[in-house]
Design a protein around this nucleic acid. Structure first.
Lengths: 344, 344
DNA sequence: TGAGGCCATGTTAACGTCAACACATCCGAT
DNA sequence: ATCGGATGTGTTGACGTTAACATGGCCTCA
C-alpha cells in the first residue's frame, strides 16, 4: 500500500531493487511494468508486490533515453493569456494525459524568427514526440530548419503553410452566421469592427463578411480596425456611434464588443433598439453584459482535442503531411441584436 | 550555420559524432556544451564548429538520466482557464525559461485525493526538479505520500499547510483598499458578493471586509454568495438590487461584478449614482465595461515570477520549509464608484 | 634542476530501462 | 522416444551524457 517512505537512501527505487526483492531479473520486472503477456501470473504478482512495497516508479528519463520518446508533446503558444488559447490548452492537456502524454508549455513572446527557432530547438532537445503550435498569424515554418523532420507538427488556430496538418474553427462559417443573422433582422447592411491585419482569423471573418454583403447586394462600409482589445473596441465604437447610418455591427471578437457597447451607451445609441451588435468567441462574460451579447461561439475545447488527435495520428502513422480540419461554430442569440428600426 | 539537414541517418547526432569530427574526446565536447572553463579556446572553437556543421543538439533524456534532473518544473493547476492563473503561468513560464527550465503542465479536474496523487506521481516520474501548485483552495498535502520528499513544492494562490513555501496576492490588503475606498466615499456600509466557501482568497477578502466594517462601527450585512461566475454575480445582483439600503457593493471578483452591473441596470439602479461597485482582479474587460469598473488589481504576473524564484531557491538550497510571500495589490479607481447620495 | 602544482584533455564507468537474443522447461504430435 | 514449438525467464549490451579519476605537459619557485 505504498505507505513506505521512499527508501531510506536518497535515490529513487529502480528496477534492480524491485528485481532483487522479488527474486527475478530486471527484465521480468520491466515486462511487468509494460504489461507484457509473457509473464506467469505468480511471477507477476510477486513483482507487483515488490514494486508496491518499495514504492517503485519507473524513471521516464531512462525510458526516454532507451526508446527515444518521452511521451511528451510540446506546445508553442503565442498568447497564453487569451481566452480561447487557454481553453484549447486545457482540453488538449486532458486529451494528451488520457493517452499518457504530458504537455511541455513553451510560451513565446514575439513573432521573431529567432524566438520561434529557439522554441523549436528547446522542444527538440526535450525529445518531444510532437509539437503543437497555437498561433493566429501566418507562420513561416519554411525557414525553420530547426524543426527536425522527424517531429510531427500540428498547427492550431491558423491555416498551415504547405501540407502540414492544421486545425481551426470554421471562421467563415461563423462569420456567415453572424452576418446572416443581422441581415435576417432586416438591417440594410452590417458594419464591421475588424481584428488586426496580421491575424489569420480576423482576415477570414472579414473576407466572409464582405463576400456576403456583396452577394446580397448591400453596401460594404469600410472596416473599423481594432487590435482585439476592449480598448480598441471602444475606440472603434466611438467612430461608429457618430455615424447615424450604423444599425448593425459585427465585431470580430467579444472583447472589442465590450468596448463597443460602452461607446454606444455613452453616445446614447441604445442596444439593440438603435444598434444591433454581434461578437465572436462567446467568452464567459458575454452572456452577462448589459445587454447580453449575441455572439458566435467557438468550441475551443473541441479544437484542442481535435488538434491532439491529429498529432497522435501523425506520431503513430509517421506521416508528415496532413489535412486541414475545421471545427464548427454556433450562433448564440442574446439581447444585443434586434430587428432593424429606421431612425425617427 | 546549421543549414545542414540533420544527418542522413534517422537518428540524432550525438556527442560521439561531434567528438569524432572535432578530433577530441566526448568529455571535451560535453565540457563545451556545459560551458566549462577548462577548455582551451582553440579546442572550444573546433568543437563548436563541429557541433554546428552536424547540427548537434544535446539529448536531454540522457542528461536527465545522468544527473537526475531534467531542468523542468511541473505545474499542477486546477483551473487553467481562469484569467489569473493563465497570467501567472505565462509569467512563470518566462521566468523559468530564462533559467533554462521548461514547464510541464498538469491540469487537474477535480479536487479528489486520487487526482492529486496521480498528478504528483506523474510529475515525479517525469523527474521534475520542483513542483508548483496553483490552487485557490486549502490543499491537503499531508496525505500525499506521493510527493517524494526530495522534490520541492511551492504553493501559489493559497496559504500552504505546514511550513511549505507559498505565494499569494495580498488578499487582505486588497480587500482593505476596496472597502476603505467605499467608506471614504461616504457610504454608510458596504455589501459584499462573496466567492465560494471553498476558496481561500474569497475567505480572506470576506474576513477583511468584515473586520473593517466592524472596526468602523458599521453594519455588517449578510454576504450574498456566488461561485466566481458572471452568472452567479447576476443572481446576487438581483437580490441586492431589491434592497434599497444597498449603496455600495464589493464583489469578490470582476466576473461576478459584470453580472452584478447588469442586474443593477435591469433593476434601474444607476451605477455609480445609486450604487457604487468595486471588483477584484482587474480583468482585461474591466476598464471598458459600462460603467468602467473600479477594482483591485492583482499582479498575477508578479505572483508567478515570485513563485518560480521561490522554487528555484528551494531547488538550489535543498531546504524544504519556506516562508509565505505576499504580492501587493493596487486599487484602480474607475467610473463604477462615486460619493454616497442618500436616496430621495 | 627538480619538486610541486596547475591546466587541458582523455578514460572509465554508471545513470535506469528495454530490445534482442539465449536458454531452459514442458507440451503434444509424430 | 523424439522432435518442434510454445512459454517463461535470464543475460547482454546499448541509448547519450557526465562525474570521477587519471594522465601528461608546462610553468613556477625554491
Amino acid at each position: 500500500m505504498t505507505t513506505q517512505p521512499p527508501a531510506a537512501d536518497g535515490r529513487g527505487v529502480s528496477l534492480i531493487d524491485v528485481a532483487r526483492l522479488a527474486g527475478v531479473s530486471t527484465q521480468t520486472v520491466s515486462r511487468v511494468t509494460n504489461g507484457s503477456p509473457k509473464v506467469a501470473a505468480g511471477t507477476r504478482d510477486a513483482v507487483l508486490a515488490a514494486m508496491d512495497s518499495l514504492g517503485y516508479r519507473p524513471n521516464s528519463a531512462a525510458r526516454a533515453l532507451r526508446r527515444g520518446s518521452f511521451r511528451t508533446i510540446g506546445v508553442i503558444v503565442y498568447d497564453l493569456a487569451s481566452y480561447g488559447n487557454t481553453r484549447s490548452i486545457d482540453a488538449l492537456a486532458e486529451a494528451a494525459a488520457h493517452r499518457g502524454y504530458s504537455i511541455v508549455l513553451n510560451p513565446v513572446r514575439s513573432t521573431s524568427e529567432s524566438d520561434i527557432s529557439t522554441a523549436f530547438t528547446h522542444l527538440d532537445e526535450k525529445s518531444v514526440d510532437g509539437i503543437l503550435v497555437i498561433r493566429d498569424e501566418h507562420i513561416h515554418l519554411e525557414n525553420s530548419t530547426q524543426i527536425p523532420s522527424a517531429t510531427p507538427v500540428v498547427i492550431l488556430d491558423s491555416a498551415a503553410p504547405g501540407d502540414r496538418p492544421a486545425v481551426d474553427a470554421d471562421q467563415r462559417g461563423g462569420a456567415r452566421q453572424a452576418v446572416e443573422h443581422l441581415l435576417d433582422l432586416g438591417h440594410p447592411t452590417v458594419h464591421m469592427v475588424g481584428g488586426p491585419t496580421t491575424s489569420h482569423s480576423a482576415a477570414e471573418r472579414e473576407a466572409e463578411w464582405e463576400r456576403l454583403l456583396r452577394a446580397a447586394g448591400r453596401d460594404v462600409p469600410p472596416v473599423v480596425r481594432g487590435d482585439w482589445s476592449a480598448a480598441s473596441g471602444y475606440e472603434a465604437g466611438r467612430t461608429l456611434a457618430a455615424d447615424p447610418a450604423v444599425s448593425a455591427v459585427f465585431s470580430a471578437n467579444d472583447q472589442m464588443a465590450v468596448g463597443l457597447l460602452r461607446a454606444l451607451h455613452e453616445a446614447g445609441r441604445r442596444v439593440p433598439d438603435d444598434v444591433s451588435v454581434v461578437g465572436f468567441d462567446d467568452i464567459d462574460e458575454s452572456g452577462w453584459l448589459w445587454p447580453p451579447l449575441t455572439t458566435v461561439r467557438q468550441r475551443f475545447d473541441e479544437s484542442g482535442r481535435v488538434a491532439v488527435l491529429k498529432l497522435f495520428e501523425a506520431i503513430e502513422s509517421g506521416r508528415r503531411e496532413g489535412s486541414f480540419e475545421s471545427v464548427p461554430t454556433e450562433l448564440v442569440v442574446r439581447g444585443s441584436t434586434g430587428p432593424y428600426r429606421p431612425r425617427g
